[in-house]
Simulated assay, not measured.
Amino acid sequence: MFFYYIMIFLFPFHDHPILSASIFGVTTVKIAGIAATIVALMNLFQGGNGFIATRKVIIPYLFCLFCYFASYLLNDTTLSLEVFPRFLSVSVLLFTSSILLDSYIKIWKVLLVFSAAMNISSLYVVKQHLYGVIRPGGTFGDSNFYAIAAAFTAALCLSLWAYQKKYKIFFMISFILNSSSVLLSGSRGGCLALIVSLLYFWYKHRNKLIGALLICLACGAFFVLIPNNMLERFEGEDYGARVSTEHRLKIIAAGFDMIQKNPVIGVGPGMFKIETIKYLGSEKMAKMAHNSYLEVGAEFGMLGVCAWFCLCYSSIRQLHDSLRIASKEDEKIFACLHSLLVAVSGYFIGALFLSVEYEKVLWLTISIASVSVNIVLKEILPPPPRLHKEYRLNEDKR
């Protein structure tokens, strides 16, 4: 598990001078991923717990891969090969998680490691803000990508703080640091994701009054800490925000045109930026869609977007099924699974305004969801009657 934890820790460091360094063209996170894959294979072939991911998640993911290759082959675009490493990365994450994450305590450690890594990344955002960077992206190198991950982490840590008895100071500090850094990043999509997660946290909190007080305190802190340029971006007074909004509207219109002309297989993986030049007639408009659902639909067609929706829905459904069992038996497991649901609820709303379909926090949630039901069944429910019978026979022999 050591290499798996290292891989999780390195997720936020896309643009770090040391932690994102490459050795012979291979980045540190890929090296950790390769090592984790080797350990997972050894565990699988040496009679470990085996592949415990449920078919309800694996089948939709295989459907997504099928749509990728179908769109790539039928469009014959060499640029689509640049997207393949992303699918390979999430495949490695899903595969290793399906073998190595075989207990609640390992999921708990994964969330701790990821939260600690995001805290370090948030400190870089604060540092860049103090040095006068208007929209800092920290170790992500992009303010939008950082903001959606930080909003996810803030909601995750707030929920863990509310439902866990351990590490309360750590989780509260993590919530304050990540939520404040979302504001400093100046990302409207990230702020919206955080707000939705906080509202969902209040809706699901067992004590509505305490939940409301926590949200009021958080909102008060936001208004104190929010920078002026962020308020201007929301109010539309900032010139850069106005230009960005105009460009996004044009790109969204181009995206719908792509879907209309290529409804089944799309324009090809990774081709959205190139196609916007053709549809809008300007190289300056070669940008992402800033809408994950639109970008997936334009690149993979309606077949691909249906596969992606099935994958996301089945993952959330798995977390809900696990919660239904765990809420009555084990509060520790309940806290982890509930926190993931709170965090990912805002993520899916933020994805309406950001192109984050390949971000690792989403695929980490999907990976945990794929094994959650089997872990809950293994750790909470009693063993089958056959095992009880064998146990009684052994007791009689003694």
Rank of each mutant, 00 (worst) to 15 (best):
M1W: 07
I6F: 10
M7W: 15
F11L: 08
F13E: 10
D15R: 04
S20L: 09
S20Y: 08
T27N: 12
T28C: 10
T28A: 15
T28R: 13
I31W: 10
I31S: 06
A35G: 03
A40P: 08
A40T: 11
F51N: 05
K56N: 15
I59A: 14
P60C: 11
P60Q: 09
C64S: 13
L65I: 09
A70C: 10
Y72E: 04
L73T: 13
L81H: 06
P85F: 15
R86E: 13
R86T: 15
L88W: 12
V92I: 14
L93N: 01
D102G: 01
D102V: 02
S103D: 05
K106N: 12
K109V: 08
L112F: 09
L112A: 12
S115H: 02
M118H: 04
N119L: 08
S121I: 01
S121M: 06
V126R: 03
G132C: 07
V133I: 09
V133G: 00
R135Y: 02
R135M: 10
G137M: 03
F140N: 05
D142R: 01
S143N: 15
S143W: 10
A149D: 09
A149P: 00
A151T: 00
A151Q: 04
T153C: 12
T153P: 02
C157L: 01
L158Y: 03
A162N: 12
Q164N: 13
K165G: 15
Y167Q: 06
Y167G: 10
F170R: 07
I173W: 13
F175K: 03
L177V: 04
G186Y: 00
G190C: 08
V196Q: 00
W202Y: 12
K204D: 06
K208W: 07
A218E: 07
C219N: 07
I226L: 01
I226F: 01
E235S: 14
G236P: 03
G236F: 08
Y239F: 11
A241S: 13
S244P: 12
H247T: 07
F256W: 03
K261W: 11
G270S: 10
G270Q: 07
I274Y: 08
I277L: 11
N291G: 05
L294R: 00
L303E: 07
C306E: 11
F309G: 05
F309C: 08
C312R: 06
I316T: 03
Q318S: 08
L319S: 09
H320V: 13
D321A: 14
A326I: 06
S327V: 14
E331S: 12
K332S: 09
V342K: 00
S345Y: 03
W363Y: 11
S367D: 13
S370I: 03
I375K: 04
L377T: 01
L377M: 08
I380V: 14
L381R: 14
P385E: 13
R386L: 15
H388I: 11
R392D: 15
E395W: 14
K397S: 11
